[in-house]
Amino acid sequence: MTEPKVPKWRQLADEVRRQIEDRTYPPGAVLPQIKPAAEARGVSYETMRAAYKSLEADGLVRMVKRVGFKVMEPPMRRRITRGRTITRDPARGYIFPAASGPDEPWEVHGRPLAGFFPAPDEVATRFEIESGSETLRRRRVTSPAGEPPFQLVDTWISPDAVADAPQVAEKSTGPGGVYDRLEEAGHGPISWSETIRVRMPDREEAQLLAIPVAMPVVETIVVGVSARTERPIEVTIRVIPGDRVELFGELQRGRSARWPVSPVAQGPNS
């Protein structure tokens, strides 16, 4: 059997990738414009464009309007240990599994926002409200200090919870943040569940995270449930570029997998 032929656009993408890796095009450099690059290699405009778009999808370059395809700084991939334990710091309040050490400083990109926005379907379903209803959203884009945006975090709070704890809609929610205000208002202790999935970003998310729309993202959805009403009162949606994170967890042996294997577990025909 003959090896399948590698498409020309992929060959070109691999060539430019090597030039990025050997710093012929260092971070911050702009790749040659598509038309002259295509002419220099004797290929069509669309073939060269497909090569550049492939590099963009891999997070190596980013299309900047009126500039071209700019080489990106290689991202630092961070590990999130998917434990089940939520801890608490007296100064900061509840702390969820994160991609940093306990003392690593983080910074906010832009200005944190708090306001009322149409609830997306995911949130409206949880709160049992009509999709598009005006709902409190607190948004921030953060990263470890000195690094590009790492995550976009939207915390949505149900209308009933806002009525019980109006301070959650203010710019400063006070010590312990939103969760402390909700629990003080009678919803404590809040319990949480988490869903993790991979999807493509929308244009706004890609812009805020400085990634191409072709870059998959890891989305975690944490739902906080009130102890008083037993209904969701907050939904936090965290979006992280797929090239910046890896999920890690320790695997444990169940009773049936204990070592050494017992004769009964091995079975009569072992």
Score class of each variant (00 low, 15 high):
Arg10Ile: 13
Leu12Asp: 11
Asp14Leu: 15
Asp14Gly: 11
Glu15Lys: 08
Arg18Asp: 04
Gln19Pro: 05
Ile20Trp: 00
Glu21Tyr: 02
Thr24Ala: 08
Ala29Asn: 05
Ala29Trp: 00
Leu31Ser: 02
Glu39Cys: 11
Glu39Val: 06
Ala40Cys: 11
Gly42Thr: 02
Tyr45Val: 04
Tyr45Ala: 05
Glu46Leu: 09
Glu46Gly: 13
Tyr52His: 11
Lys53Trp: 05
Ser54Asn: 09
Glu56Cys: 03
Asp58Gly: 10
Val64Phe: 00
Arg66Tyr: 11
Pro75Gly: 04
Pro75Arg: 05
Arg79Phe: 08
Thr81Glu: 13
Gly83Thr: 14
Tyr94Thr: 12
Pro97Arg: 04
Pro102Gln: 07
Asp103Asn: 15
Val108Asn: 14
His109Val: 13
Gly110Asn: 12
Pro112Asp: 15
Ala114Met: 08
Gly115Arg: 15
Phe116His: 15
Phe117Ile: 14
Phe117Pro: 02
Pro118Trp: 08
Pro118Met: 10
Pro120Val: 13
Val123Met: 12
Val123Trp: 02
Glu128Leu: 09
Ile129Trp: 01
Ile129Ser: 14
Glu130Cys: 03
Ser131Ala: 14
Ser131Cys: 11
Gly132Ala: 11
Thr135Met: 08
Thr135Gln: 03
Leu136Val: 05
Arg137Ile: 14
Arg139Gly: 02
Val141Ser: 00
Ser143Thr: 03
Ala145Arg: 13
Gly146Phe: 12
Pro148Tyr: 02
Thr155Val: 15
Pro159Tyr: 05
Pro159His: 06
Asp160Gly: 10
Asp160Asn: 13
Asp160His: 06
Ala161Asn: 03
Val162Ala: 10
Ala165His: 01
Pro166Asp: 07
Pro166Arg: 03
Lys171Ile: 01
Ser172His: 14
Gly174Asn: 08
Gly186Met: 00
Ile190Ser: 00
Ser191Asn: 07
Trp192Lys: 13
Thr195Asp: 14
Val198Pro: 04
Leu208Glu: 12
Ile211Val: 07
Val213Cys: 04
Val213Asp: 00
Ala214Thr: 09
Met215Ala: 01
Met215Trp: 02
Val218Asn: 10
Gly224Trp: 02
Val225Ile: 00
Ser226Cys: 02
Ser226Gly: 06
Ser226Asp: 11
Ala227Phe: 03
Arg228Phe: 05
Thr229Ile: 02
Ile233Tyr: 05
Glu234Ala: 01
Ile237Met: 04
Gly242Met: 10
Val245Ala: 01
Glu246Cys: 07
Gly249Ala: 15
Leu251Cys: 13
Gln252Asp: 07
Gln252Phe: 06
Gly254Ser: 12
Gly254Asn: 14
Arg255Gln: 15
Ser256Ile: 09
Ala257Lys: 15
Ala257Glu: 10
Trp259Ser: 12
Gly267Ser: 08
Pro268Lys: 01
